[in-house]
Design a binder for these strands. Structure first.
Length: 929
RNA sequence: GGGCGGGUAGCUCAGCGGUAGAGCGCUAGCCUUACACGCUGGUGGCCGCAGGUUCGAAUCCUGUCCCGCCUACCA
């Protein structure tokens, strides 16, 4: 054991934190054990895999903290705990990054070819990947790194193929031509979820079509995308619209291309009250129009190439870029006199969430997963409670999405990802879908096969994550048998649909059992103003900078690298004039755990992390203080601590029990905020503020020798309470607790706090808690008078405590030492109630105890008058409220008896307090001016 | 348009039917032999607004106004 003197005065997290993680890993403390027989209760969390080439942000720090708290707590409870780490290949995001690199080199992926390009991505992954893993370790994440998984691992690829083939065989995967969301920037199709709808300013442009069979007559339509008129194949009006009755069935003349367009009646598409009541229909470029086209068997004229330029069908506009074409079409319509004006219009513009380019609805053939079949059992699992969502509010959102689910487009025109295991036969056109690369077409046996160029949506492989990482499709994989279904899925609510819902569907479908028993959704970490973290806004804080600290200049440089605006840089300079001090991982974890889970936004104020650091420092110092006092404690007193006798010892043990219960409840109910707040209050406001102060005169007396008969039990209690407190805090702040725990004398137990026993609540001692309350109230009352009058803390005062309760008087008598030490009373008199007020004494109340403090000679009259006025005012206000309440007949008649009794007692107490204050007023005349 | 969440002390948020709470801030005084990353006091709130239910409402109901998020096909 390190000598106590070696503990520094202030806690330095950097030194301590760097030391422990490697040791924990070396000792294999984080490893879950394959145990299909379940000899120990299994506990498992699979990590929401972060983007392999990303870097840690505060959102990661949040999930890492929460998941680690649960894993560590389960481990201490003796469960077979596994937190399985891993990363995701993040198809589009990663490919976009690498393509950007290539562009800088003056080349692109097509010039490189698929194989070479993929080599480059793997190269990039080798270099940039793994950053997050390292960062998670700095945070103290107790993950089992031996089981680390990557969504592009050999094994995961096998799982993906297996899943694809099975779903195809079950006809839950199919290929069809449909209108899709096409990302012009990413050159790939997107699922509905990957499209962001932004409200933007645009215009509603109106133009006319000539009715060819009725010379001189026109019909006016409106559009936000004028270029699409090149693909118009109908104009629709409402069947009941009187204005257009005579035109239904007539033909229109397209001004630019040689096409006759019918006027059709459609009550679904057309709202007669909007605009002109006539709608142009472009089935190949609009989702509504597509449906309309299907209803009326309209031709689908595609006018656009995949790169966003117009194709042959666009006639004279062929080859133009889409937005240039928009201008050109408008100009031409104006020249021909068809333009009928335009007005400003707010509209939802669909953008690609990765490239931010405008998404085009485009006709194309893609692979789909039939979702409603898979969704049904996933809905049932939540309805029946096999899987519980917390906070519970999210259940509705989950249900709503699941019940209105659309088929999921899973193919992507990317190269980075799992290539679709489908082969096209050049001869008979048959599609062979197989687990292993087929040598020949399964129908015509032709060898002319080409594999589908596309890859699967990243979320397809992510959907398999909770079981594929554990060994699926090998149904007998020991890890799978041990840990599936997993215990908790903890992640951000923003990927409830993207990921959680899909894991539910896939998990149930392939495993026949839900993938997790609890879904715990946390909020999104924002900056302190509640703004979403964004590199452009320059408000992204790297958790490592919070842990290790960073100077102003490097911080600003980092933010600048992220592409922040000048304004953002300036804001950063004013927000962090000194940079960020090193708070340590424990402080960050603690702070993140204190946010309530219902909160959608977690505005992480750097300043608030200071509170976490202060706590660690306090813990450090409390231990530093205790260690010398515990020196030489016999091991026997640690193994079986003697029963407490003193009030302080009984009280603190009872409070420890209460706290252990509160922490347990907080963890069970996913209220880590309540767990941390119970711990904080106990440790700071009870253990430090009172208990340590109370035992000072016993274990470190100001004068004279230690009374060993009293000291022995207290010493054992102190050791016991402090050690248990460290264990209760360990899941939240693992580093500092391990460091201190190692130094503390304790029972023979595990080599590390990581695998030490989780404290269980024991019996409460209500008498001790009540008695302590009286003592605390008396001490506080004296202190209030003292400070009010500016009496120096070192100056003893003459105090009289009067009570009619003999037991309380006896109690106070026994606590004379405590009163003397904590309130600096000398002399101290204990009297029966109604002992009067000798001249020179101020009076106050501590519950039913009357507190008198001799002020004569110590204070000025004005101070006392001010105190009396203030206190009387407060008491009077409470009396008024209570009297009014009790004077209402309806209250006395209808309220429960105990509530009435409580109110009456309270009123009596208030009245007594008031009377004492009034009597004390006479003191004013006894004081000097 | 629909859905969800929120509006409580200067700030960030708990509380969700019976005396308005915490942390930070502010303020007065203290280097009281663990901690100034500290100690002891104190200040501070028509609990968004309007109705209703109730003996009693920050807490339940209705309406309303703001603020966020998600979602939707208004050309």
């Amino acid at each position: 054991m390190t000598a106590p003197e070696q503990l520094e005065k202030a806690y330095d997290p950097r030194e301590v934190e760097s030391r422990w993680y490697p040791r924990w890993v070396e000792q294999g403390l984080f490893e879950g054990k394959d145990d299909p027989a379940h000899t120990r209760e299994p506990f498992c969390i699979v990590i929401p895999p972060p983007n392999v080439t990303g870097s840690l942000h505060c959102g990661h720090a949040l999930f890492a903290t929460i998941q680690d708290i649960y894993t560590r707590q389960a481990r201490m409870e003796g469960k077979n705990a596994l937190w399985l780490p891993g990363v995701d290949h993040a198809g589009i995001a990663t490919q976009v990054v690498v393509e950007r690199l290539l562009k800088r080199e003056g080349t692109d992926r097509h010039a490189l070819g698929r194989t070479k390009f993929l080599e480059r991505v793997w190269e990039w992954k080798a270099r940039a990947g793994g950053t997050i893993d390292e960062q998670l370790k700095v945070l103290g994440s107790s993950a089992d790194w031996k089981r680390h998984r990557f969504t592009m691992d050999e094994h995961m690829s096998r799982a993906v193929r297996e899943a694809f083939v099975r779903l195809y065989e079950e006809q839950l995967i199919y290929r069809t031509e449909r209108l899709v969301n096409w990302s012009v920037g990413g050159q790939t199709v997107l699922s509905d979820l990957e499209v962001e709808q932004n409200e933007e300013d645009g215009e509603l442009f109106e133009f006319a079509y000539d009715v060819s069979d009725a010379p001189g007559e026109q019909i006016i339509v409106a559009t936000t995308r004028p270029e699409t008129m090149l693909g118009d194949t109908a104009v629709a009006v409402h069947p009941d619209d009187a204005r257009y009755q005579h035109l239904i069935g007539k033909q229109l003349r397209h001004p630019f291309v040689d096409r006759r367009i019918p006027i059709i009646a459609d009550s679904i598409l057309v709202d007669p009250k909007f605009g002109t009541g006539a709608v142009k229909v472009t089935p190949a470029h609009d989702f509504n129009d597509f449906a309309t086209g299907k209803r009326h068997q309209l031709p689908m004229v595609n006018i656009m190439n995949k790169d966003g330029t117009l194709n042959d069908n666009a006639g004279e506009f062929k080859g133009m870029e889409r937005f240039a074409a928009r201008k050109a079409v408008k100009k031409k319509l104006e020249e021909l006199g068809f333009a009928k004006g335009s007005k400003k219009h707010r509209l939802a513009v669909p953008r690609c969430s990765r490239t931010n380019t405008v998404v085009e609805p485009l006709l194309s053939e893609q692979w789909y997963v039939k979702a409603d079949v898979l969704a049904k059992p996933a809905i049932e699992a939540v309805t029946s409670g096999k899987t519980v969502i917390v906070p519970e509010e999210w259940t509705k959102t989950y249900m709503h999405w699941m019940t209105n689910i659309q088929d999921w487009c899973i193919s992507r025109q990317l190269w980075w990802g799992h290539q679709i295991p489908a082969w096209y036969c050049a001869d008979c056109k048959h599609i062979t879908v197989a687990r292993e690369t087929p040598g020949a077409c399964e129908v015509c046996k032709s060898k002319h096969l080409t594999q589908d160029e596309d890859v699967l949506d990243t979320w397809f492989s992510s959907g398999l994550w909770p079981f594929a990482t554990l060994g699926w499709p090998d149904a007998d994989a020991p890890a799978l048998k041990t840990f599936y279904p997993t215990t908790i899925m903890e992640t951000g609510f923003d990927i409830l649909f993207f990921w959680v819902a899909r894991m539910m569907m896939m998990g149930i479908h392939f495993m026949g059992e839900v993938p997790f028993k609890k879904i715990y959704l946390h909020g999104m970490v924002t900056d302190e103003k509640g703004d979403k973290m964004s590199k452009v806004k320059g408000n992204v804080i790297d958790p490592l900078d919070v842990i290790y600290g960073i100077g102003l200049d490097p911080l600003v440089a980092k933010i600048k690298d992220g592409g922040a605006t000048d304004a953002a840089l300036k804001a950063a300079r004013t927000t962090y004039p000194e940079g960020i001090p090193a708070y340590g991982a424990d402080a960050l974890r603690w702070t993140l755990a204190t946010y309530p889970p219902q909160q959608r936004k977690i505005p992480l104020a750097i300043k608030r992390i200071e509170g976490g650091r202060h706590l660690c420092n306090k813990l450090w110092n409390a231990t530093r203080f205790a260690l010398p006092m515990l020196d030489g404690i016999p091991q026997g007193d640690l193994e079986t601590p003697p029963a407490p006798e003193s009030l302080a010892d009984r009280w603190i043990l009872s409070r420890l029990s209460a706290t252990a219960a509160a922490v347990q409840q907080g963890i069970d109910e996913f209220r880590l905020d309540e767990a941390t707040s119970a711990l904080y209050r106990f440790f700071w406001n009870e253990l430090c503020d009172w208990y340590l102060e109370l035992i000072k005169p016993i274990l470190a007396p100001r004068e004279g020798a230690i009374d060993e008969s009293r000291a022995r039990i207290t010493r054992a209690t102190l050791a016991r309470v402090l050690e248990a407190t460290l264990r209760l805090m360990h899941p939240f702040i693992p580093f500092v607790t391990e460091e201190l725990w190692q130094k503390l004398p304790k029972r023979k137990s595990a080599a590390s706090i990581v695998v030490s026993e989780w404290p269980r609540p024991e019996a409460r001692d209500e008498a001790a808690e009540r008695e302590m309350g009286a003592l605390q109230a008396a001490i506080s009352a004296v202190r209030t008078i003292r400070t009010e009058h500016g009496i120096s803390p070192a100056q003893p005062v003459h105090v009289r405590l009067a009570t009619g309760d003999d037991a309380v008087r006896a109690l106070l008598g026994k606590q004379e030492l405590a009163l003397k030490t904590l309130a600096r009373t000398d002399p101290l008199e204990l009297l029966p109630a109604g002992s009067g007020r000798p001249p020179g004494f101020a009076t106050s109340s501590a519950g039913e105890i009357e507190v008198q403090v001799l002020l004569k000679g110590l204070v000025k009259r004005a101070h006392e008058t001010a105190r009396l006025d203030r206190e009387t005012k407060g008491v009077q206000r409470d009396i008024d409220v209570m009297e009014k309440k009790l004077s209402q007949p309806s209250f006395v008649e209808k309220a429960p008896a105990e509530v009435i009794a409580e109110s009456r007692a309270r009123l009596e107490e208030l009245k007594t307090a008031k009377r004492r204050l009034e009597e004390g007023r006479a003191l004013v005349d006894e004081l000097d001016d």
